Computed example of a mutant assay.
Amino acid sequence: MLPKKTFFFILAFVFCASTFAQQLESSEIETLITSNTTDSTAVSSNEIKVVFKDSLIATVDSIAPVSVQNVAIYPPPYRNWRRLGSGSAMYAGATVIAFGILWALPERTTKWNKEEMKEKGILWKWKQNVKAGPIMDQDNWVLNWIAHPYCGGVYYMTARSCGFTVLESFGYSAIMSTFFWEYGIESFAEIPSKQDLIITPVVGAVMGEGFFYAKKSILKHDKKVLRSKILGMTSLFLMDPFNTILDGFGYKDRVKTQMNIAPVGVNQLSKTPVWGIQFSAQF
């Protein structure tokens, strides 16, 4: 059973991280709006109607400067299934490593009966465990309330960083923690746990959303924490390891471009419309 102090400490940590990140984001947006505000000529609907009647031909002096934006957007404004697939595929390799680490841990920690597994085979053990579960496990509280929620948070961030919503990311975390881990990899060694089936996706989603806002803040500060690039990159890796690895290896999304042309004002001398052209490209 998790001590009350530890439980409230975890919730307080996630809440503070999320609140801090949101405050940073809000203050930066306010500063950005203030610093980019310039005087412009207001155009009434009647003026625009007159202008369109006079001329719909754009001349050289009626074209507004081109605005090019090539800034990385987080999270992406669309569901990036390709990136999610790449991140999910990386779990296979990570699972082999995780299983090896758990196998190396003492039996009093994992509660795995290694001798029985060696004697009757791993596949036989998996079938027996799946049929017997789920049950209330007796694992150490560190595994149940820290390790499993953290893994749930990582599952959550894998989808959240690919442009999926809170509910969709929670669903991804629930699927991965249930079928990939509890009834998948871990069932080769032990019976699925009732606590883990609930705690991993639920508490993990809360922790993951805190990671999400913290990552947004770190990326807006040029991947720095306390002005340190090392701390920033370490934090990003711990909160969202697979997407961070993909970015580190130069993963590139398919280019998405967009161009908008619209009247943004009126030339006071010629009374012709001033057309604005905005081009944006996301890589």
Rank of each mutant, 00 (worst) to 15 (best):
F164Y: 15
K216D: 05
I122K: 13
S55E: 10
E47C: 05
K111C: 07
N46L: 11
R227W: 11
L236Y: 06
I57C: 01
L236A: 04
S228T: 00
E115G: 02
E190F: 07
Q268R: 13
E28Q: 11
G153F: 02
L246Y: 08
S67D: 10
K224S: 07
K229R: 10
C16Q: 06
A262K: 13
E209T: 10
T59Q: 11
G133W: 04
T234I: 14
G265T: 06
L226V: 07
S45Q: 09
S193G: 05
V14P: 00
G210N: 01
N70G: 15
T110F: 06
I230P: 00
A262I: 11
Y91S: 03
S235P: 00
K118N: 14
T178C: 14
V43K: 06
I185A: 14
S270M: 05
P201H: 10
S193Y: 07
S270T: 15
V206I: 15
G208W: 03
E116F: 04
I29M: 10
T200R: 09
I277Q: 06
A94K: 05
R82Q: 10
F7C: 05
T38E: 07
V264M: 01
Y251H: 13
P201M: 10
I33T: 13
Q23V: 05
L197A: 08
Q128P: 03
D196M: 05
N70R: 14
L84T: 02
E47Q: 15
D137K: 04
I245L: 15
P263C: 02
N36V: 08
V266M: 09
Y251M: 12
N80C: 03
Y251E: 13
G276P: 02
R79I: 01
L231I: 06
W275M: 13
P134R: 00
C16T: 12
K216F: 12
I277C: 08
H221V: 01
G171R: 01
S27E: 10
K194D: 03
S55Y: 07
N46E: 12
K120E: 12
L238D: 03
L236K: 02
A159S: 12
L102V: 01
G204L: 04
V60T: 12
F170T: 01
V66H: 08
L84A: 04
E182N: 06
N140S: 13
S235H: 02
K53T: 10
R160S: 00
K220F: 03
K224L: 00
S40P: 00
K4C: 04
P106D: 09
D54R: 14
K256E: 14
F179W: 15
S217Q: 04
W103T: 06
F52E: 12
F20M: 10
D253A: 15
F212C: 01
P192Q: 05
S187G: 08
N36P: 00
P273Q: 08
F9T: 11
S26V: 03
F9M: 12
K224A: 05
F180A: 09
K118V: 13
L32C: 09
T31C: 04
G153C: 03
F279S: 11
A214I: 07
I146V: 15
E116S: 06
A104W: 12
R160E: 01
K125I: 03
M117C: 04
F20Q: 05
I97L: 15
T6D: 09
F188P: 01
K220Y: 04
I218R: 00
P241S: 12
F237S: 09
M207Y: 09
I218E: 02
S88H: 03
P241T: 09
D54N: 14
Q128D: 15
E47K: 14
K194Q: 11
M259T: 14
V274K: 11
D54P: 01
R83P: 03
